[in-house]
Design a binder for these strands. Sequence first.
DNA 1: AACGTTCTGTAGCGGCCGCTATAGAATGAT
DNA 2: ATCATTCTATAGCGGCCGCTACAGAACGTT
Lengths: 170, 170
Amino acid sequence: MRLFWEHGYEDTSISDLTTAMGIASPSLYAAFGDKQHLFEEAVERYANGPGAVVATAMAEPTARQAIVRSLVDAARLYAADDRPPGCLIVNEPRLTDRRGASEAAILGRLRRGVAEGDVPADTDVKALAAYVCAVITGMSARARGGASSEELAAVARIAIRTFPIEDSGL
Amino acid sequence: MRLFWEHGYEDTSISDLTTAMGIASPSLYAAFGDKQHLFEEAVERYANGPGAVVATAMAEPTARQAIVRSLVDAARLYAADDRPPGCLIVNEPRLTDRRGASEAAILGRLRRGVAEGDVPADTDVKALAAYVCAVITGMSARARGGASSEELAAVARIAIRTFPIEDSGL
DNA sequence: AACGTTCTGTAGCGGCCGCTATAGAATGAT
DNA sequence: ATCATTCTATAGCGGCCGCTACAGAACGTT
C-alpha cells in the first residue's frame, strides 16, 4: 500500500513490491493473483484507513463543518511526516471511480445541508462539490511537491472563505 | 507536443512519436538527440504557445483581474475541444521548475498589487498564490477527467469569491 | 550516366517489465 | 527415519522500452 501510495501503480514494479515484502515474486502471485489484484487490495485497505478523510468528515453536523473538516484534515494528513505525501486515490489516474464516489459523498452532504437548512437553497451544490474536489486535488499535488501542512492549511483557510454558509468557528 | 500533452512523458513511447511523425526512430534521434531533449523542445514550444495562459494573464492592470483572467482562461482552454485536456506543465511530474516559475509569477503579480494598492497590504500573498495554483491544478485534473469548460468555469467562479479584493466586473 | 553524399528504414542491441515453470527446501505424518 | 505434501526461490519466458549499427534508397554533382 505504501509503495503504491508513494510511487503510483505504474512506477511500482513487482520487484519493488517483493523486495519490500521480503519475498520472491512467485509467493506474491500465489497470494494476490496478479499486480492488478494486489493493487486493488492495497487501495481497499487505503480507502478504509488513511484515505477515509473525506468520508469521515461528512459526518459533521453541518455541511460547512463537514467541508471545513475535509480540507483541514487533508491539509494535516497529506503532509504528515509519517506517511507518503498526498492522497493515493486523488493521484492515481486509474481510480476515477473512487474519486467519483468521494465527490458524490460531498455532493450528497451539501444537498442534505440544503434540506436541513444550513446551506442556502440557491446554492449551486454541484459546482461547490466540484470546487471542493478541485481544491483537495490541488492540495494533494502540492503535498507531493513537498508542501508543508502549514502551507496546505493556509490554502484550506482561503478555500473555506468561499462558502456561502455562515462561519462556525474552527 | 500533443502526444506528451495527452499522455505524459512516461506513457509516450518513441514508437508513438515516430508513428505520429511518420518517420523512423533513427531520424528522430538524428533530429532531437534523445527522448529527453525532444521532450524539452516540446515543453518549450508548449510554454510559448498554449501554456502561456497564466503568464499572459499577469499583464492585466490589477492583480485581481490578472488572477480572474488566469482562472477563466484556464477553464476555457483546459477543456477546449480542439486540444488535449488540462495542462502539460501542471500534469507532468518532472516539470516542477516550470510550475514553480508560474507560481512565482502569480506571487510577483500579487506583490505588485500590494505595492500599487489594489491588493490589501495585510494579504498573505504567498498563501494566496499557493491557493490559486492549487485551484488551477485541480481544474487541470478535472479537465483530464472529462470535465467541460462550463463546469470548470463554475469552479473558477467559486474560487474567485475568496479574493480579499473588490470585484471588478467580469 | 556514373559517382559521392546525405538521409531513411530495417533489424537488433541490452535492459526492465509482468509473470511462471520447475526444482529444491521445509514441514507434518507414518 | 522415511516419505508425501506444501511452500519458496532460482531461473527464465515473451514483450516492450530507449536507443543505434548498418545497409540501401534518394539526390545533387560532374
